[in-house]
Design a protein around this nucleic acid. Structure first.
Length: 476
RNA sequence: GAGACAUUGGUGUAACGGUUAGCACAGCAGUUUGUGGAACUGCUAGCAGGGGUUCGAUUCCCCUAUGUCUCCCCA
């Protein structure tokens, strides 16, 4: 008995706010990618991938210095050469940068992009809030017409339905443009300043920094004032009002259910006019119930969206999905958001061009799909298992694999094992219908044993006939 | 950045100021040597990390880390 104590090396776990996407979840991610690719490219969005880091200045200039993202959520670092870089916290700035840098200005407009990738924000993690998050986004650059705002919303809506999400709600609002928003801001300040004492602590701070956010406050004492507060929509300039009305008309016409939420404001500075968010739940934070009564909200009650019928691709097997998370936990969660950013392109050194875009959070989509118990196509089920025995068996196995692979027959194996017993056990566990057994004797005779797992019946067949017989048996 | 709660083998859990820290599942091996699904047996593996209080801490206290929930903000 040694008295040496094992020295345990430090063990690691993924950094705070990051997570692994495990093999059993890959099918959901794969599904999201393939559906998005289908839908987005059908609507002529072009896939673009931008670097995971950019010059820090890009985000500062685009997102705005006053925003939380820039103030405290960016992963910034300096290279040895002295460049200031930042892991991208969002997608739009990069896409616009790429648009300007690569001469898309000369392409027929509008230019439409989509992207899928991970983004980084240094925030305190909670459920479905990560420091590295995956988003899937759309951008349309170079069109001012509200129809493209509606297009973004429509395409997201098609995508979500295609994914099989039965219920989701678009909240829409307009935050005006650089002409009318400052006016509204000062109106709001005028209204709230005398009431500052009655506001909660956070709102007193908001009054100075971001008065629009006061409307978002859930504190009862702040909500009382909201009733008589000036409405953003009332103070829109004619052009913005017209633009917004136009958007709503397009949405109506397209039959896209939406909720006009006059208190929806967005965190990023670059948004103008249209802003929207997508929720899984209609009465988000209970916000709209009271508003409906006073008639401030025009609500479109979404028709029950039929669960999209998924055409099953031939040969694909729909994997069973266990419901692992409780659906109730996903109430009122934001799946995505977006808006118009008419000033951003000139802000980043291009000529003034209108644009609109939006993004969906993939982690949230996956969680939602799981909570709904949606079935997604998984890997084709393994139906054949290869059991080898002895040196001869092992040596001949690659040749057999290749023959099977060329004929499109997926096969399971555990080449490292010696005992037939444990290999058959694994064959059983993998749910294979048929086992192929190759031992010393068979290797010499150029035969192989084919065993039906359910009955246990097996026969010795010549290897030359293996494929033919296998195919026949697999048809059953 | 602020607050609340949590953390026991790979997973799910039990117990307790003094125990060989229990159980189940999974994993591995075996139950006569070339045959699975059952059963049985054995093995592997844990008190998140660091301080303190104590004769003694997995248990009590503090700090840290991570997770969950509020706030903030956001996908």
């Amino acid at each position: 008995m040694g008295r040496h104590r094992k020295i345990k090396p430090k063990s690691f776990s993924s950094p705070k706010g990051t997570h692994d996407i495990l093999p059993q979840d890959q099918k959901y991610w794969e599904r999201i990618r393939s559906v998005s690719k289908n839908v987005f490219s059908y609507y002529n969005f072009l896939r673009i991938d931008t670097p995971h880091f950019e010059e820090t200045g890009l985000f500062v200039q685009a997102v705005g210095t006053q925003t939380d993202i820039v103030e405290k959520q960016m992963y910034s670092f300096q290279t040895e050469g002295g460049d200031d870089l930042t892991l991208r916290p969002e997608g739009t700035a990069s896409v616009v940068r790429a648009y300007l840098q690569n001469g898309f200005v000369a392409e027929p407009h509008p230019v439409k992009f989509y992207y899928i990738g991970s983004f980084f924000r240094h925030e305190s993690p909670q459920r479905l809030r990560f420091r590295e998050l995956n988003q899937i986004g759309l951008e349309i650059i170079g069109d001012e017409n509200a129809v493209v705002d509606a297009e973004i919303i429509h395409v997201f809506s098609v995508f979500l339905r295609e994914l099989g999400i039965p219920e989701f709600y678009f909240h829409v609002n307009s935050v005006g443009c650089s002409d009318c928003r400052p006016q509204y801001r000062s109106q709001l300040l005028q209204y709230y300043r005398p009431k500052a004492k009655g506001l909660c602590r956070d709102c007193k701070r908001r009054l100075k920094q971001n008065p629009l956010r006061i409307l978002d406050c859930k504190e009862e004492k702040c909500r009382i004032f909201k009733k008589n507060a000036p409405q953003l929509l009332d103070s829109l300039c004619e052009a913005c009002k017209k633009h917004f009305t136009s958007l709503l008309e397009f949405l109506d016409e397209a039959g896209i259910p939406y909720i006009l939420n006059p208190y929806l404001v967005r965190g990023l500075d670059y948004y103008t006019r249209t802003v929207f968010e997508i929720f899984t739940d209609s009465d988000w934070a209970g916000e709209l119930e009271s508003e409906k009564e006073k008639g401030a909200v025009l609500e479109k009650v979404p028709e029950k969206i039929e669960e999209a019928e998924k055409p099953i691709v031939e040969g694909e097997v729909i994997a069973e999905v266990k419901i692992e998370e409780k659906p109730k936990a996903l109430k009122g969660i934001a799946l995505g958001s977006g808006g118009r950013y008419d000033n951003l392109i000139s802000l980043l050194g291009g000529r003034a061009e209108p644009a609109v875009g939006g993004a969906l959070g993939m982690e949230r989509l996956v969680a939602l799909m799981k909570s709904l118990g949606l079935k997604v196509p998984g890997e084709p089920k393994q139906r054949v298992y290869f059991v080898q025995l002895g040196d001869m068996g092992k040596k001949k196995s690659f040749k057999i694999f290749e023959e099977l692979r060329k004929n499109g027959i997926a096969v399971g194996e555990s080449l490292g094992r010696d005992s037939v017993k444990s290999q058959l056990k694994l064959a059983d566990k993998s749910g294979s219908d048929i086992s192929l057994i190759l031992g010393q004797k068979e290797a010499i005779d150029e035969t192989i044993i084919i065993r039906e797992m359910s009955s246990g019946i097996q026969e010795v067949i010549p290897q030359s006939k293996m494929i033919e017989i296998l195919k026949k048996k697999l048809k059953k």
